[in-house]
Write a protein that binds this DNA or RNA. Structure first.
Lengths: 340, 340
DNA sequence: CTGTTAGCGCTTTCAC
DNA sequence: GTGAAAGCGCTAACAG
């Protein structure tokens, strides 16, 4: 592989000159010399070695992103598709994504190692939770990062997130608009941050429409298909005229559980019971009936993450920036007007 | 961040000595000196800078892997989950995965750039097709790579693949064992390489059981839900007693189309009609009924890819190694004994 | 305008 | 056993 020396020799100039025409676009290199160098580069097919550049500049133009292991019985809602857009946004900014893995229960040593070896310039975090150890660690280490997802409200760090509150509010309002008043909410446990935001959207919509909240309509469960089944089973145990006529599920996977349980009980989704999911996992459109859901704007999220990251990286502005991106309600066939 | 110089100063030795204790585990460094150096490293918290190492060794310990953009209406069968295992296998071998993207119709310039800048040591290819330009290009450039998926039979390059022929054979034999004789096959277009292998497994099973092949039972279509619907619609147009009693779908997505069309027509999958998919996408287990399918051994594939890659990288053995890994039939509820 | 030179942090001969 | 020094390929003062 040719080096800058080869170009210099070929063009009959010093390596410094070559470097000049390579970098300082407008430095004082004569037209003639520049042309010669460019021709030499072209002729021998030279491309600067990125490792050497990195060493010189103490940067790697690499952004670390940790994979989350997804249990086999679970569906990763958005992260897999997200990664593609993240990579694309990174490239547009002159970076690449370096992926790595770590034990779920002990991520810090791996992050630490990446920092100490100076493998990456920054991290993108995803799947953040309350009291997220990674956030605390990276802030402590004063190492650049941006998070996809919020964490403790009193922590000040740069993040991008979907506006789950807004998304679920829209979903719930849509159901109210269809005439529904008894609307069930299949939520996550209280610890979940994003779950809390989404739930808040449910309350927002109820409040705005003056629909009183009935605690019986709020069921909490895990991120699983079974949780959906359990929720519907519970609601079906209520007296007939107190059962929800519509349900908002915190995630498509839970919605699928509800659909499956509904089928088992002979309840027709979209007619007897309206259902809205959240995430728009790829399969949602092929469910029977196709699932009305809230779509996460993963393309925009990837772009926003890189935008914030560049602010952190370039301006070294420790001013924690945020971006809250509105999701989109995708109306399909699992929702219908209340028929009484 | 401390450098090797800092360690040397702290330990009162030369940087060479530090380097020795760091690398040559058993070089002739006195016990005492080694101890001193180790202590100094510990004390100031030193970790070698990987970029400097890379420059020195002309390696990056990075493996390039290109994302495939997945159209929004499509489900990426296995690639998203595969990537996690690939990253893990790479780490076990001391590598990291560098992800990148490229225009679907013009990948070569991006690959070329990664090579010329010496960004990565090797590539892992996925989603290979017949006459794959990337394979040709990388072989031409004599740049190390391993492919997940085969290509032209007369091309000699290192690949790892699922034994689709074996997988579909097992699936078909399972149906035959259940008493089915009229078995439909929803295949891909002839161009598809993996599709051809899988189809071959269908023929194998038929032959082995002396079930004559009926061309009416072979339908080809795209990788889409609609293709599945179309296939079933066609089969339903046959005379009642000539319709397949069981179907093998080339992929879960096509199987889902078949399920959806079956529902529309009041055909009960698992009772009136047995159905087997291929891939075991995460959602398959939650379909109604849960889909019997052929599971790709993505963990093993990731590991095999890294194993081959190390052979290519270390031994520079251009002897093209291959690994054909058997998939596993996952029996769920979409298949049942033929009841007449 | 262009060339000389000093590193970036590390590994590895080659002397001592 | 240990250290001096060259050099991986590049950038950026600093001279001239």
């Amino acid at each position: 592989m040719p080096t800058i020396k080869d170009v210099a020799r070929e063009a009959g100039v010093s390596i410094a000159t070559v470097s000049y025409v390579l970098n300082k676009k407008d430095t004082f290199v004569s037209q003639e010399t520049r042309r010669q160098v460019l021709e030499a580069i072209e002729r021998i097919g030279y491309t600067p070695n990125i490792t050497a550049r990195n060493l010189k500049s103490s940067r790697t133009r690499l952004i670390g992103y940790a994979w989350h292991e997804v249990p086999n019985d679970q569906v990763n809602p958005v992260l897999d598709r997200f990664t593609y857009y993240l990579a694309q946004a990174a490239e547009a900014a002159g970076y690449h994504i370096l992926t790595f893995t770590h034990p779920t229960d002990d991520p810090l040593p791996v992050y630490n190692d990446m920092i100490r070896t100076q493998r990456v310039d920054a991290f993108v975090l995803a799947g953040t939770v309350r009291d997220d150890a990674r956030i605390r660690f990276l802030q402590e280490a004063d190492f650049p990062f941006v998070s996809f997802g919020r964490s403790n409200p009193d922590w000040d760090f740069p993040w991008v997130d979907t506006d789950g509150r807004q998304g679920v509010r829209e979903a719930t309002e849509y159901l109210i608009g269809l005439g529904h008043r008894r609307i069930g909410m299949a939520a996550w446990p209280e610890e979940s941050i994003s779950g809390s935001f989404r739930l808040q959207g449910y309350f927002d919509a109820l409040d705005a429409a003056d629909v009183p909240f009935d605690p019986a309509y709020l069921v909490r469960g895990k991120h699983s298909e079974q949780a959906g089944r359990d929720a519907l089973a519970y609601w079906c145990s209520l007296p007939r005229d107190e059962q929800p006529t519509a349900i908002v599920a915190i995630t498509d996977l839970v919605a699928i559980g509800i659909m499956n349980e509904a089928e088992r009980r002979g309840i027709v989704i979209g007619r007897d019971l309206s259902l809205i999911g959240y995430d728009d996992v790829p399969m949602s459109q092929y469910l029977r009936p196709a699932l009305t859901t809230v779509q996460q704007p993963i393309l925009e999220i990837g772009q926003a993450l890189m935008r914030l990251l560049q602010m952190v990286l370039i301006q070294n502005s420790s001013a924690a920036e945020h971006a809250l991106i509105s999701p989109r309600l995708i109306i399909r066939d699992s929702t219908g007007a209340l028929c009484r």
